[in-house]
């Protein structure tokens, strides 16, 4: 263990937060959609992947990264709206497994379409020039782009929090996640709320895919890996809980990052070990409501 200084550990902690930030963005959408619509969105990873590819495409036709930051969530969000309206809506009221199977199939279709359009091999995704390099954060030099990822995630979370806590629409969403029937009785067209929640969730997934692209490049299968890891995040945080997704996302990021420092071969397993430990101590996750799945 020689050479493991405090600074190195601190830097690795930051790297874990940057990794965790991507998990958080991915998992809040997954959690929001599940909490509200009781749809386990197996296509969430595919939306994430398509977000990265839309960014790649926009840059190839002359756009820049900043345009992508705005355009990608809009494009993916609109795509999400269409998917909910056309494919998922007819399945409400038929039990949790119908939309699950549908989105599972949809993710295969989306991955295959991207393979046809962009090829099976991946592409590198350049870090925008102003975000290249590293900055001194006190304990050592840390890649500027990773700091940007943490910052951008914080901005999205803040915006989402303001939207949910301070607007009427947010009030409807918070109430509808607990009791859709009373919201209906109070005059709200719940199906429209579900549509918007699905759009928001997928837009954030697309945004996360774009943010992740410069870190790991883009390949058609990039959504599958993160989907499995994000399910761990939502289970640890508590299904349907946004606060839980944030806390668990960061925790999972840090755990992966730390185990890859001390025992790299354990890094991937560590996520599932964490999940097992949390589930033994607290089966509903950090902030989960017991019985939500029943």
């Amino acid at each position: 263990m020689a050479g493991l200084s405090f600074d190195l550990i601190a830097l690795q902690l930051f790297a874990g937060l940057a990794l965790g930030a991507i998990y958080v963005l991915f998992a809040i959408g997954l959690s929001l959609i599940f909490g509200m619509l009781t749809v386990v969105n197996f296509a969430h990873g595919a939306f994430y992947m398509v977000g990265a590819y839309v960014g790649l495409y926009l840059i190839s036709i002359g756009g820049n990264f900043w345009i992508c930051l705005v355009a990608v969530p809009i494009v993916i969000g609109l795509f999400g709206l269409a998917v909910e309206r056309v494919l998922i809506r007819p399945l409400y009221g038929r039990g949790i497994d119908y939309p699950l199977l549908l989105t599972f199939g949809l993710s295969y279709v989306m991955v295959e379409c991207v393979r046809i359009a962009f090829g099976k091999t991946g592409y590198p995704f350049d870090t925008p020039e102003v975000l290249q390099g590293a900055v001194d954060i006190g304990v050592g030099y840390f890649p500027l782009y990773r700091l940007f990822v943490i910052g951008a995630t914080a901005v999205v979370l803040l915006a989402l929090w303001l939207f949910l806590e301070k607007t009427s629409y947010g009030l409807i969403i918070r109430a509808g996640a607990r009791d859709p029937q009373i919201v209906r009785v109070l005059g709200v067209d719940v199906s429209r709320v579900w549509l918007i929640v699905f759009g928001i969730g997928t837009a954030i997934a697309g945004f996360a895919g774009l943010l992740a692209a410069p870190l790991q490049g883009v390949i058609p299968e990039m959504g599958g890996t993160i989907l499995a890891e994000a399910f761990v995040v939502t289970v640890v945080g508590g299904m349907g809980s946004i606060g839980g997704a944030v806390l668990a996302g960061l925790l999972v990021g840090v755990v992966v990052s730390m185990t890859s420092l001390f025992a790299p071969e354990m890094a991937k397993v560590s996520i599932f070990a964490l999940m097992a430990i949390v589930l033994i101590v607290r089966p509903q996750g950090f902030f989960g409501r017991a019985g939500l799945m029943s």
Partner: peptide
């Protein structure tokens, strides 16, 4: 309609429950 089980929404304050009566 005021249902028998009242259906006061968990996690919301009294004011937010009242606002919910007006959102639509």
């Amino acid at each position: 309609y005021v249902p028998e089980e009242r259906r006061i929404v968990q996690g919301l304050s009294v004011r937010e429950n009242l606002r919910l009566g007006l959102v639509a």
